[in-house]
Design a protein around this nucleic acid. Structure first.
Length: 760
DNA sequence: TGCCAGGAGTCTA
DNA sequence: ACTCCTGGCA
């Protein structure tokens, strides 16, 4: 859970950013988080013990997204539970069991949607699940490590060792561990928020200026953390005041007891110190030394034997085996991936990756055919659901295979599917179906489909499979199509690589596909998605049909990480920006210049044309300038550099109520303040106004030379347009660094002028 | 009256 | 996860 309220408290230093800005870098990611989110999609199957690999698909989709943006993910998995957390974990485990029980009951009672929401709480990410993902990570040449204990500590260690340059996680604990660069709220479009330790001095809610990691840690522990329950009625604000006033934990606790307003357990001080030591010295695995080390070296005077709470020592060999995923970090038993149906269904389901295809009672192909017939009409159904083949990844050539497009299942369709299911051995599926809406049937279908589909793939890769897959895809929660999902489609190597990840159109019948597009939740989202695609717009030059755009994207092959991305058809802006950093630089840099110019041109033209839209966005006023810009620029060209942002921002803007003039003024003031507090920004004068204070504060070498200036420029343009708040744009300026670029600046100037023109 | 913590309710993914 | 509301406190 982390420190509740910590991230909101630091909101003033949240710097909106995009994954592509980290191109060329290696970012640590929490494998558990990915697996968990993926498992949510198949909560019912997991609860029922049905074989499914959806969680692997989700995680690999994220991996592909990272690669697409030129970022190398370093996936870190949780290991054993710390003694400090044993209690918590036991309670959680109990809750999960309870949720599972209730959820399965609801399922039997014919309340699939309720069952699903309950079963989501029952999700337990197991080392076996991690192992399955690891198999895929190996194939994709993605670095990973299983921590001896907590992934949080492991991630921070990797960051300190320079093996990663940032951490992608939703866990605020990382900041307490000492993470320097935390990326949170990463969405499917690659947008995220950076929280940089260097910005702490700029936090507005509380003054952390001059605060050490130690004081910050004390504040966090005092307010309640995973290792120690907080004192009631003491939150972060109060803890902050206490630390500021009394400095040491001893004095704080003494004062609290003296006050008598709070109930402090007798062991609190001791527990407090243990919690702090756990944050400081937890054991981690050092990939360089190939051995267990402490996150922070112990004080020579301290004795690790007296610090059981930081985790028991682990033998070097065992630690290595755990780190590579061969040994279950909890049971310390070797993880066996069953090749044939094993005792556990889960294991069976997972098994396919390593082992040969399992044997099914019936030939799958037959099964599919039946379904395919029924499903054909489905193609017309909603495209909202993206179903990824859970098993799909299992096969080594998963990416090569064509990706099934997911369509939301219409009722009738579902029914047919159910019938098919009935033939299958799963009993429950047949019963539930009449009652439920899409959710239930989907779940049922998923379990069955997944299992069989995987086999089919192994055996054959015929069109039949595709048909089959489509239904599977439907199994996914009925959401709008996400870019990420699209990415999965990219994998389809069949010759559909050209098509956009976002649109799976190729596979489904053409007619069906078109229909699907129409059915999509929001066309806008799709367009936005396209825009988000970085290079793609450039190359296309024009705002071609969405389908054309799609073609541009193509997923990087799994084996080569960063290189692929730049090399890939669409050079990402980020890549360009960070070309300096990484290996790929050579390739990316040349490409950049050419496309960059084009982009600029496009952006200009784009900005010119959609004045009305721009105005609208300005009217919103609330969001970051960037978002507005994005919206404002309907054309693909504009999206080029802003790509990722547009999607997310677009919806947000619309959703967020328009700020009142007062609010805007306040926002501006805030921004200004930040600006002042932060070191002076190097950006150009014109750009400097827009540039965020934040950006200026945490300057990453990589970021400094950002060619993407376009976005910023756009922002600048918007500002004047938004007449009301010119100030706002300043605050918004997220990409200050980019502005700094020479070519960009020139382009920016042009754009600025143009925009003014338009409005004037 | 304002601040803070915590709970309830809602929405999203 | 986010917002809104409530109660306690100064």
């Amino acid at each position: 859970m982390g420190i509740s309220g910590l991230l909101p408290l630091l909101k003033s230093i949240h710097r909106p950013t995009e994954l592509k800005k980290y191109a060329g870098e290696t970012l640590g990611v929490d494998g558990y988080g990915w697996l968990h989110r993926g498992a949510v999609a198949c909560a019912i199957e997991l609860a029922q013990g049905k074989p499914t690999r959806k969680y692997v698909d989700f995680a690999m989709h994220r991996v592909r997204m990272f690669k697409y943006f030129g970022v190398t993910p370093y996936v870190v998995f949780d290991g054993d539970f710390l003694p400090s957390k044993a209690k918590t974990e036991a309670a959680r485990s109990k809750r999960r069991e309870e949720s599972k029980r209730i959820g399965l009951e609801l399922l039997r009672a014919g309340k699939p949607s309720q069952a699903y929401s309950e079963l989501q709480k029952a999700i337990d990410v197991t080392p076996e699940m991690a192992r399955h993902l690891i198999e895929e990570l190996k194939k994709a040449d993605v670095p990973y490590v299983v921590a001896p204990y907590e992934a949080d500590a492991q991630l921070v260690y990797l960051e300190r060792q320079g093996l990663i340059s940032g951490i992608v996680s939703e866990d605020s604990d990382l900041l307490v561990f000492g993470a320097k660069r935390l990326l949170t709220k990463l969405d499917q479009h690659g947008q995220c928020v950076e929280i940089n330790r260097r910005d702490f001095c700029a936090v507005r809610e509380i003054s952390l200026t001059g605060w050490t990691d130690r004081e910050f840690r004390h504040m966090a522990i005092l307010s309640g953390c995973d290792y120690l329950d907080g004192v009631s009625n003491i939150g972060l604000k109060t803890a902050y005041r206490l630390v500021r006033k009394h400095k040491t934990p001893e004095r704080i606790i003494k004062m609290l007891r003296f006050d008598g307003k709070h109930q402090i357990p007798d062991s609190y001080l001791e527990d407090f110190k243990q919690a702090e030591l756990t944050f400081l010295h937890q054991r981690v695995f050092c990939p360089k030394k190939q051995d267990i080390v402490f996150l922070t070296e112990l004080d020579p005077s301290s004795n690790p034997d007296e610090m059981r709470f930081i985790g028991a020592p682990v033998e070097t060999e065992l630690a290595r085996s755990i780190a590579i995923g061969d040994v279950n970090p909890i049971t310390k038993e070797r993880i066996v991936v069953p090749r044939s149906p094993g005792k556990r269904r889960i294991s069976q389901a997972l098994a396919p990756a390593s082992g040969p295809p399992r044997t099914l009672g019936k030939p799958i192909s037959e099964y599919f055919k039946d379904r395919s017939d029924r499903r054909i009409p489905l193609g017309e159904m909603d495209p909202n659901c993206f179903a990824v083949d859970p098993n799909h990844n299992s096969s080594t050539t998963a990416e090569e295979r064509p990706r099934p497009i997911v369509f939301p299942l219409p009722r009738p369709y579902v029914e047919g599917a159910e019938e098919a299911l009935e033939s299958t051995p799963r009993p429950y599926t047949s019963n539930a179906r009449p009652l439920r809406r899409k959710t239930e049937p989907i779940s049922k279908l998923l379990g069955l489909d997944v299992f069989e589909s995987s086999e089919n793939r192994r055996r054959t890769t015929g069109p039949v499979i595709q048909v089959y897959q489509d239904p599977t895809a439907s199994s996914r929660p009925p959401k709008k199509a996400r870019l990420c999902d699209e990415q999965t489609f990219d994998e389809s190597a069949d010759g559909t690589p050209e098509k956009s990840k976002f649109f799976s159109s190729t596979k489904p019948n053409k007619s069906a596909k078109k229909k699907a597009d129409k059915l999509l939740m929001s066309d806008d989202s799709i367009e936005e998605a396209f825009r988000s695609l970085p290079d793609h717009s450039w190359r296309s030059e024009k705002p071609p049909k969405p389908t054309d755009d799609i073609v541009i994207f193509h997923e990087p092959s799994p084996k080569k990480q960063t290189d692929e991305v730049p090399a890939a058809e669409s050079p990402i802006e980020g890549c360009e920006d960070h070309a300096e950093h990484e290996v790929e630089v050579p390739a990316s840099s040349p490409t950049q210049q050419g496309p960059a110019k084009e982009c600029n041109d496009d952006s200009r033209s784009a900005s010119m044309t959609p004045l009305g839209e721009l105005l609208k966005e300005f009217s919103y006023g609330t969001g970051h300038a960037r978002t507005r810009v994005i919206h404002g620029l309907p054309t693909p060209a504009s999206s080029i550099q802003q790509t990722a942002t547009p999607k997310c921002t677009g919806p947000r803007n619309t959703q967020t109520p328009m700020p009142t003039p007062l609010q805007r003024i306040g926002a501006r003031a805030l921004q200004r303040d930040r600006f002042q507090s932060t070191p002076p920004t190097p950006g150009i004068v014109s750009s400097g106004d827009r540039s965020n204070k934040f950006d200026s504060l945490p300057v990453n070498p990589a970021f400094v030379p950002l060619p993407r200036v376009d976005v910023e420029e756009v922002e600048a343009l918007n500002k004047p347009l938004g007449s009301e708040d010119q100030i706002i744009p300043d605050s918004d300026g997220e990409d200050d660094d980019d502005v700094g670029d020479e070519p960009m600046s020139s382009s920016a100037v042009r754009r600025l002028n143009l925009t003014k023109f338009l409005y004037s």
